[in-house]
Design a protein around this nucleic acid. Structure first.
Lengths: 258, 258
DNA sequence: CGCATGATTGAAGTATATCAATAGTGGTGG
DNA sequence: CCACCACTATTGATATACTTCAATCATGCG
């Protein structure tokens, strides 16, 4: 099932794949690159064949060679503790970059496992690094992506350290909703590509707790759950529960003191 | 008490400060820079006067201008939730870089508050970014530092999500020990610059729990606590408790134990 | 020095985990 | 295409690690 980085199919026919809508150029590189720069980048990138659910992009401990970008589908990354427990460190969707945490190491500190049929782009880091010398914009985009990742993980620390189970689940659903929305999909109806178990693992909760809270939210008509299908019925209420008030901009928002 | 970034004293006499032992050149930039490169970097960096305990390097929401490096002392960074709760995201010691999470934002997403008399170097990011164009090594070091930060936060996620209170405290002490050791101080005797409250906040525990576990560890002769003074009596046992077995080869790639 | 703040220790409460049992899903091969 | 089986999800009952509340003790700063 494992697909090693180097085993990514390099024999794709030319032009079958264009980086035009590649995340490193769009989502991850919002400023865009000049056509010429884009071409250089494109040359070094290899697109994987569709990877089946359960296959690995890389395993924890594998020698680090490349970062990856999700093109389609979704995946999870996780570390394994010495006790053999798995801790999911993130879920990734099209446009997201993976393995930014491996850049200054010799081997991947996490595993990346595909949640549904997924394609990724492999970006050999050595080449990216070299190209960065010539294309400052590329370097900037990489740094931006990393900075963002740091912030998101700090948000996770806050979630894991301070939030109740309900707040966690609400936050999780909102985050998903937002990510789908940014990608042009519905913000209110989507399909969870991860299991309840994986959600619980990620959120620091038992499966049963996740399940119970889904049921509770459904009873309160905040969401409609049907297996992996989720419909968010009240983003606003969910936002209140999540503890992220996010008053969009007029942020004079009073302290919501309880 | 607040010291805004722009208010950092720029009127220091020349040569009172040398970057030779600056973390961006040493700890954070292990490969080192060529003398000429170092000089360029040095020119843009402003060293703060000693900042007193309780003062701020920057506040959450302040416009982002610079990253900072701790030169002496220590500080904490934290976010504030909408409910007004504080979540500490990290403790920083000499050589550590702060505000790597702000690079792609217009304002600092965290506050940085000094825990004891501390000096920092201010590195205006615009200038650093420009210099990075000319000095690839600099860019690489920045990226390395960020990659490492991402990994450390993932370790924190694991800690917060999977570890028991005892494991958390043990892990915390080991991490501190390791950081002091790397800086040339004793790995077994050191002074906690943060309060029990701050430790608890960081580890996702109540103060009382931290206190109790300190007492318990002391009773088991794993540590000796006397206020803020800590002596680690059995690194090995602590390591076992921490859940990070680390088959201890003193590796460069050491488990980035958080 | 003295008082506010931080630390410790004990007792009681609670959110969530764990255990357990049932129900639902989806993938596979006959 | 259906039937089967393993896996995943749901729901309830019980257990527990940690929090919260409370009271005392220590510390260090003005």
């Amino acid at each position: 099932m494992t697909v090693k980085p180097h085993s990514v199919d390099k024999s794709r026919s030319m032009n079958e794949f264009k980086c035009d809508n590649c995340g490193l150029l769009s989502l991850c590189l919002p400023d865009g690159l000049k056509p010429q720069e884009a071409e250089q980048l494109e040359k070094m990138i290899e697109k994987s064949p569709p990877l089946k659910k359960g296959s690995y992009i890389f395993h924890q401990g594998d020698p680090f060679t490349s970062i990856f970008e999700v093109r389609a589908g979704s995946l999870k990354t996780y570390t394994v503790t010495n006790q053999g427990e798995e801790q999911i460190t993130g879920f990734y969707f099209p446009g997201d970059l993976i393995a930014l945490n491996a850049i200054d190491t010799s081997s991947y500190p996490i595993s990346a496992k595909v949640l549904e049929t997924t394609t990724v782009c492999e970006i050999p880091y050595g080449q990216l690094d070299r190209l960065s010398d010539q294309v400052p914009r590329l370097r900037r985009q990489l740094i931006r992506a990393m900075s963002k990742e740091i912030r998101e993980e700090q948000q996770m620390m806050l979630l894991l350290s301070k939030k109740t189970a309900e707040e966690r689940v609400a936050t999780f659903l909102l985050k998903l909703s937002d990510r789908y929305k940014r990608r042009g999909y519905s913000a209110s109806i989507f399909r969870l590509s991860m299991s309840r178990n994986e959600i619980g693992n990620y959120l620091g909760l038992a499966v049963e707790t996740v399940s119970r809270i889904f049921s509770r939210f459904q009873k309160q008509h905040l969401i409609r759950v049907e297996g992996k299908e989720i419909e968010v019925l009240s983003l606003d209420t969910l936002r209140q529960i999540s503890g992220e008030i996010r008053s969009d901009d007029h942020s004079a928002d009073a302290i919501n003191l309880s």
